[in-house]
């Protein structure tokens, strides 16, 4: 598994990185943690002429939870996110999801920005971030641009990023009311496995703590890209937790109706649908019960 020769450059700042990437166009790749890119280069699936490493741009790894906008640098590793005490408090669903990626070694290298840019339909960070209405701040030589994660993926392994445009940070709005979330992932084994199906359920109560102000369902491995299930979400919003708990079975069917999984080596489409339905029920049950308990 030799890697084909390429030109390497470690960018010293963001401007230099995007300038270089845009000059080389599609022949250049940005290197974050490398756990996807280096593997793809070993497999000759990607043959870049130039690799621009971002690792010296240390501000891209910062995690800032101080304001109403939680800002996660694209180079934050999964280990850093999983262990971040404030994130565990505010958006536990994200910490749960990234702690299930790869192995300890992989999570120490792999980054959240890389996980999104790789655009696997089953990316474990994508379903919870979709459910958290995350926005990506991207940067290119022509400046910064905010892209809602919901419009970022364009197909399996594909995004709307153009050459020279990279993810700089991820913004999540701090939940205003009391909130809770759960991510469940189906794996063949407990580590170093891609998700066969992943279900993220995030719910937030209104300021009075009575009704569900926001319900978000993110699904991974269930369509050509990570998706939301807006119709199912609408069936729960505005209800009390007690009312919502009773509706879980019918909402679960609406969740499955939103999906279009494929048969592949990891699971059949029919099995994925069964699992998504069961996982949704379990995740919703846990989240709504915890919100009821207060």
């Amino acid at each position: 598994m030799r890697i084909k020769p390429f030109e390497y450059h470690a960018a010293s700042d963001l401007r230099e990185a995007v300038q270089m990437l845009s000059e080389e166009g599609a022949d250049a790749r940005a290197l974050a943690g490398g756990t996807d890119l280096v593997l793809a280069m070993k497999h000759k699936a990607v043959l870049p002429k130039k690799v621009v490493s971002l690792h010296r741009i240390t501000e891209m790894a910062a995690i800032n939870t101080e304001g109403d906008e939680i800002k996660i640098g694209a180079l934050a590793t999964h280990s850093e996110l999983a262990a971040h005490l404030e994130l565990q408090k505010v958006v536990p669903i994200l910490c749960q999801a990234v702690s299930l990626i790869g192995s300890w070694q992989i999570r120490n290298s792999a980054t959240i920005g890389g996980n999104l840019a790789h655009a696997s339909p089953a990316a474990d960070s994508a379903a919870p971030l979709l459910a958290l209405d995350a926005t990506l701040v991207t940067t290119s030589p022509s400046g910064d641009e905010n892209i809602p994660l919901a419009s970022f993926f364009s197909g399996p392994g594909a995004t709307i990023l153009h050459p020279g445009q990279i993810i700089k940070e991820i913004i999540i709005l701090r939940p205003q009311g009391r909130s809770s979330g759960r991510y469940l992932k189906l794996m063949r084994k407990r580590a170093v496995d891609l998700s066969q199906a992943g279900v993220a359920f995030q719910a937030e109560l209104d300021p009075a703590g009575e009704k569900l102000a926001k319900v978000a369902i993110g699904l991974g491995g269930m369509a050509p890209t990570p998706i939301r299930a807006p119709e199912a979400e609408g069936m729960l919003e505005g209800l009390s937790c007690a009312e919502a708990l009773k509706k879980i079975p019918s909402v679960a069917r609406a969740v499955v109706a939103a999906t279009s999984p494929i048969d592949d080596i990891r699971a059949s489409a029919a099995y994925r649908k069964l699992v998504a339905e069961a996982f949704f029920k379990q995740a919703a049950q846990e989240v709504l019960t915890s919100l009821t308990a207060g």
Binding site: Y8, L31, G34, V38, L39
Partner: peptide
């Protein structure tokens, strides 16, 4: 701990 086979 990291996988040294995936680090350029």
């Amino acid at each position: 701990p990291v996988n040294s086979c995936l680090i350029l």
